[in-house]
C-alpha cells in the first residue's frame, strides 16, 4: 500500500521528468535475457529486469488432435473451425517465491488476465507465428505449443517482461521434423530424433509495452510503487514492422481519449526500440547456441 504523501512525491517527480531511480519517463530498465536454459523444454527463455522482475518461460511442444478443444471459450470455438492449423496454449503462473505486493486473489486475477491476453494475441495472424505450418495432418493431428510462464519475482512491469520472455522462448523453440506418409487416404507420421526446425514467423511475434498513467503523464516500465500511484494503464502489443497487434487497458481508472492515443503512439515507438534491442540479444544467443556454449542459467 502506498501513502498519499508518497504518491504525491512520485507524481510530482514524474511531472518534472524524474523517477525514483533516476530514469526518464520513457526509459526502461536494464534487462538480461537468456534462452535455452531449461533443457527439458523445447524452448525457454529467462528475462531478468534490474530491480527485481524475473520471468521464466518454458515451451513444451506436443502433438494433439485438432478436434480437442475446450469449447467453453468462444474464441476457441472460432479456432475450432479451422482444421488445418496448430494451436498455442498459454498459461501464466506466479511462483510463491515472488515477492508479492499484491494479495493472493489479486495474483490469481492477474495470472488469468495475462493468460487470456497471451492466448488471444498469439493464436491468430497478429501473433506472428505461422499456425498453418504447425499442422501435421490436416483434419486430425497438429503441433500444440504449450507456453508456460512462471513469474519468479515481481518488480513492476511484469507484463512487458512476460511478453519479452515469450518472444525469446519462441525464438529459441525447435520442433522436430515430421515425415507424413499416406496409404489410400489414411495418414500417419513419424518424427525425427532431433529438434531442428525453427518456428516460422518467430520474428513477427510482438512485444508488449505498458504505459502507466500518473496524473497527466505516463511512464513506461513502471516500478511497483509507480504502478500503485497509477490509475490506469495501457498495454500495447506491437511487432517488428510497427504494426499494432493488440491493445489492452488495465487498472480501474478512466482515460481521456487524447491521452490514450498519445500513450499508444509512445508505446509503439518504444516497442520498436525494444524489438531491435531484443533482436540483437537473440542473435547473440543464436551464435552462442551454435557454438555449443552452455547458458549461465541461474548460476
Amino acid at each position: 500500500m502506498i501513502s498519499k504523501v508518497e504518491k504525491d512525491y512520485i507524481s510530482k517527480g514524474i511531472a518534472a521528468g524524474i523517477r525514483n531511480d533516476g530514469r526518464g519517463p520513457n526509459e526502461s530498465r536494464q534487462l538480461e535475457l537468456e534462452t535455452g536454459i531449461i533443457n527439458q523444454a523445447s524452448g525457454s527463455c529467462r528475462v531478468s529486469v534490474r530491480g527485481g522482475t524475473e520471468v521464466l518461460v518454458g515451451i513444451k511442444v506436443s502433438v494433439g488432435d485438432i478436434q480437442e478443444l475446450d469449447t467453453r471459450d468462444e474464441e476457441e470455438e472460432a479456432m475450432k473451425n479451422r482444421a488445418d492449423v496448430g494451436r498455442i496454449v498459454c498459461s501464466v503462473e506466479c511462483s510463491p517465491s515472488a515477492k508479492i505486493v499484491l494479495d493472493k486473489r489479486q495474483i490469481e486475477e492477474m495470472c488469468i488476465l495475462y493468460t487470456q491476453i497471451l492466448n488471444r494475441t498469439l493464436n491468430g495472424p497478429q501473433g506472428g507465428l505461422d499456425l498453418y505450418k504447425l499442422c501435421i495432418i490436416p483434419g486430425s493431428v497438429c503441433w500444440i505449443l504449450n507456453i508456460d510462464v512462471l513469474i519468479l519475482n515481481y518488480g513492476g512491469s511484469v507484463f512487458d517482461a512476460i511478453f519479452m520472455a515469450v518472444r525469446g522462448a519462441i525464438h529459441n523453440t525447435r520442433l522436430a521434423k515430421v515425415k507424413v506418409e499416406s496409404t489410400d487416404g489414411a495418414f500417419d507420421f513419424e518424427v525425427e530424433d532431433d529438434e531442428t526446425e525453427v518456428l516460422e514467423g518467430r520474428e513477427n511475434v510482438p512485444v508488449a509495452v505498458t504505459a502507466f498513467q500518473i496524473d497527466k503523464n505516463h511512464v513506461i516500465d513502471a516500478m511497483p510503487l509507480e504502478e500503485q500511484c497509477s490509475d490506469s494503464s495501457v498495454s500495447v502489443m506491437v511487432n517488428k514492422h510497427g504494426k499494432l497487434c493488440g491493445v489492452q487497458k488495465g487498472l480501474k481508472g478512466s482515460l481521456e481519449t487524447s491521452l490514450l492515443i498519445n500513450m499508444i503512439q509512445h508505446c509503439q515507438n518504444k516497442g520498436q526500440e525494444v524489438i531491435s534491442a531484443m533482436d540483437s540479444f537473440l542473435a547473440q544467443e543464436e551464435r552462442r547456441i551454435i557454438d555449443l556454449v552452455e547458458p549461465v542459467g541461474f548460476r
Binding site: K179, V180, E181, S182, T183, D184, G185, A186, F187, D188, F189, E190
Partner: peptide, 16 residues
Amino acid sequence: HLSQIQISAGLKSGAF
C-alpha cells in the same frame, strides 16, 4: 512392401 508409416496409417484407418 509399404513402409512402416504407411502400414500404421493403414492399420489405423482400417484399410489393412
